[in-house]
């Protein structure tokens, strides 16, 4: 990825289409932040491809002045894999919602993550199907009443991070729609990561699931109920940064500095680059009740990326065999005879 900072402005990535999401939808904020993140990254619009599936969030490519594909339900990861594998020189973003990415597209999602192909997957999680007008999704909490669960759902949701780590993911970050700076920070980090980056953006659907994330986004309590993780920094949170996460047996515990004998020295330092995902998983599973919801980059480790491995393998066997054409290959590798 070339880094031509300041060469582009957010408007270079924006096109003239009217944005047609509902007024107040969290997607508007995410779109604006994406334009800014792209400008900061400085990859040329013509070298950028945005691929989506089907759903409200999947309309996003139409609002980008880049190459884009608005495809079919659930298949964005597979299509983006084709773009990136064939053209490793392109920067590829994938936009999926929780239904598109984790229900109908669940198989492609885990396999993209397992392959560690260099896609930047933005998972817009509003815990609902919006475009079909309000059915429960695979991230909807148990018991939630929706149009297709009038008496409440009777199943547990996926936690996207858990799915990502189960598929041996190398990058996972989280933000929410109203946390603009955090969203931009994790998008930029995701793009700089070589391999599959999964960015979960918690996003409010005004119409069908309003207030799903109000617990975290509440202006007064946000800093007490979330923790912004940064690699190499102490895991501190709270309005006055007076609370921290400490090891507690095999788990984590939130403590107040100065209480029960805990000091700053007891507070864990975030290591997003740790090979083991054990603690990353613990952090990602915190749900804001006893422990604060984690936002920021939770895991970011290096591993070979699929499209690079494919390209390197092709280059090396091409060089090793040295065939000049199909005919040359056939003549050199098969049994032939000449008819005169």
């Amino acid at each position: 990825m070339e880094n031509n900072q300041n060469q582009y402005t957010p408007s270079d990535y924006k096109n003239k289409q009217n944005v047609r999401w509902c007024p107040g939808c969290g997607d508007h904020a995410i779109l604006n932040v994406l334009h800014k993140a792209m400008a900061e990254l400085g990859v040329a619009p013509e070298d950028t491809v945005v691929v989506s599936g089907i759903g409200c969030s999947s309309r996003l490519p139409y609002y980008m002045n880049t190459y884009g594909m608005h495809t079919i339900h659930g298949r964005a990861a597979a299509i983006a894999t084709g773009v990136k594998t064939s053209r490793p020189d392109l920067t590829v973003w994938q936009i999926s919602g929780d239904g598109d990415g984790l229900a109908i597209g669940g198989n492609h999602f885990i396999h993209a993550v397992r392959r560690n192909i260099n896609l930047n997957i933005l998972l817009f999680n509003n815990k609902i199907y919006g475009l079909t007008k309000g059915q429960y999704s695979p991230t909807t909490d148990r018991g939630t009443v929706t149009k297709s669960s009038p008496y409440g759902t009777t199943e547990d949701p996926f936690i996207p991070a858990e799915l990502c780590f189960g598929a041996r993911g190398t990058f996972f970050a989280r933000s929410f729609d109203v946390a603009l700076d955090t969203t931009k920070e994790v998008m930029v980090a995701a793009a700089r990561h070589r391999g599959t980056s999964v960015v979960e953006v918690l996003q409010n659907c005004m119409i069908f699931n309003n207030g799903a994330f109000a617990w975290f986004t509440d202006r007064e309590e946000r800093l007490n109920r979330t923790i912004h993780l940064r690699h190499g920094e102490k895991m501190l949170f709270g309005k006055d940064l007076d609370r921290g996460l400490v090891q507690d047996g095999f788990g984590l515990k939130a403590v107040k500095l100065g209480e029960d004998g805990y000091t700053i020295d007891d507070v864990l330092v975030h290591d997003a680059h740790a090979e083991s995902n054990f603690l990353h998983q613990q952090l990602a599973m915190m749900d804001g009740s006893d422990l604060p919801l984690a936002i920021g980059v939770i895991r970011d480790v290096e591993a070979p990326s699929y499209e690079t491995e494919v390209q390197n393998q092709v280059d090396s066997v091409v060089a090793k065999k040295g065939f000049t054409s199909l005919r040359d290959m056939i003549l050199k590798t098969t049994e032939t005879w000449e008819v005169k």
Partner: peptide, 22 residues
């Protein structure tokens, strides 16, 4: 570049992505 994908659908979809990419 011959890629064995996770299913038939991913087979055709990855090809569509590669086609768009030229």
């Amino acid at each position: 570049k011959a890629c064995q994908m996770e299913d038939e659908i991913a087979g055709v979809c990855s090809a569509i992505g590669a086609s768009y990419a030229g």
